[in-house]
Design a protein around this nucleic acid. Structure first.
Length: 220
DNA sequence: ACCCAGGTGGCCC
DNA sequence: GGGCCACATGGG
């Protein structure tokens, strides 16, 4: 485990959060109607634009299969067709089906039972499933289970780098950095992450879009 | 014709 | 612990 940044950052995370709140509309994430839709979206959005995920979710909804039991019983080929727009579709279909089968087998298809665990053991259990890494696990815990677990994504890492908010930290260290700097509050965690993505999508891409960026001047 | 998007797992050192 | 690779579609 790396040490957290010893140098005084230009902006502390909570100030950064209030700054973002004052510059962007509330995001009210996650864009989904049910916790299970969050789980599916979290898998499907890996390394792909959200608009592609919307197509896949729409396919699943219009086919009336957006349910853990239905998906675990769906032929792989059909599931692949539904999730095709999200790319890596063979992998994602296989993993999604595996995760649904697990929920079906271990929890009788009830996410509530799965989520009725302590955050720490829930996270470990999610991480043990093929297709769920740290970001997906934290997204599910925060936005589907409604428990505090700060989500780190590529934008967040990039923004921290550009603002010199932290040293180059690994996932768990960066997560701890945020969690130790802001109130342990589900709504704060949700909105902060969503705002970081919003900032990232508009201004902090691999090639920075500095024009009109509310952070221009603070960025390196 | 490129480049990139709300990652993960496998393999290697 | 980190670096590299495969995985694949769709929009700018």
């Amino acid at each position: 485990m790396k040490n957290l940044s010893k140098r005084q950052p230009l902006l502390n995370p909570y100030e950064f959060y209030t700054f973002l709140l004052s510059h962007f509309d509330p995001q009210h994430w996650w864009p989904a109607e049910t916790p299970f839709e969050v789980v599916v979206g979290a898998i499907l959005t890996q390394q792909v634009a959200w608009r592609n995920v919307e197509k896949a979710i729409k396919n699943l909804k219009s086919s009336h299969v957006l349910d853990p039991c239905k998906i675990s019983n769906l032929p792989l080929g059909k599931l692949e067709v539904y999730v095709k727009p999200t790319g890596f579709y063979r992998q994602k279909a296989r993993r999604l089906k595996g995760i649904c089968a697990y929920i079906f087998k271990e929890y009788n298809g009830s996410l509530k039972r799965l989520f009725n665990k302590e955050t720490c053991s829930l996270r470990a259990e999610l991480l043990s499933l093929n297709g769920i890494g740290p970001e997906t696990a934290d997204s599910i815990i925060l936005y589907a289970a409604g428990k505090p677990s700060f989500v780190i994504d590529a934008y967040t890492k990039r923004i921290c780098e550009r603002l010199q908010l932290t040293d180059d930290l690994d996932y768990e260290s960066l997560k701890k950095f945020f969690e130790s700097s802001i109130p342990e509050d589900v709504e704060v965690y949700k909105e902060f992450h969503a705002l970081l993505v919003e900032l990232g999508k508009n201004y902090c891409k691999t090639k920075p879009v500095c024009k009109n960026c509310p952070l221009s001047g603070k960025c390196i």
